[in-house]
Amino acid sequence: MTEVAPRIGKWTVTTDGDVILSGTNCPQCGETVFPAHTICVRCGSPDTHEALLRGPAKLRSFTIVHQLPSGFPSPLVIGYGEFEGRTQVLAPIVDVTRNQLIEGRPLALTVGVTRTGENGEEFVTYQFTPIEPWESDDSLSARASSQETGHA
């Protein structure tokens, strides 16, 4: 069974397969955040509106995580993607090679299984995937549902 993970924010997948994150923008201070905040986390204004975030995002910081709670593929690459200088969102980076982990690299927004639960249930979340094709000889991670567990 596939379930949507709770509390990580809302996203939609268009008929073209594009992934769009649904955050909020504050008309008072101009700040855009994701996940959505009813009250602006920056200035406290209660008047926020929906703001959509579309890829590509630019890779900012990242780490290759080796010690993880059960249910994650290991190693797991996570990183912050920046959306047009507005806000940064943390997500797993999948189908990625070590030499693609360079600041400023464009990332597509994708959707996939990030982890499995105690009863084997799969949690689908938004993810990042480098836009350039990946090189199989240096794979760092694979989707949790795949047989490829990755090697560093």
Partner: peptide
């Protein structure tokens, strides 16, 4: 929510280190 996506405490500091 970031922890749910794999951001452990060591990972939080690792992201700051990389930056």
């Amino acid at each position: 929510y970031e922890s749910f996506l794999g951001k452990t405490l060591p990972a939080k500091y690792a992201l700051r280190a990389r930056k």
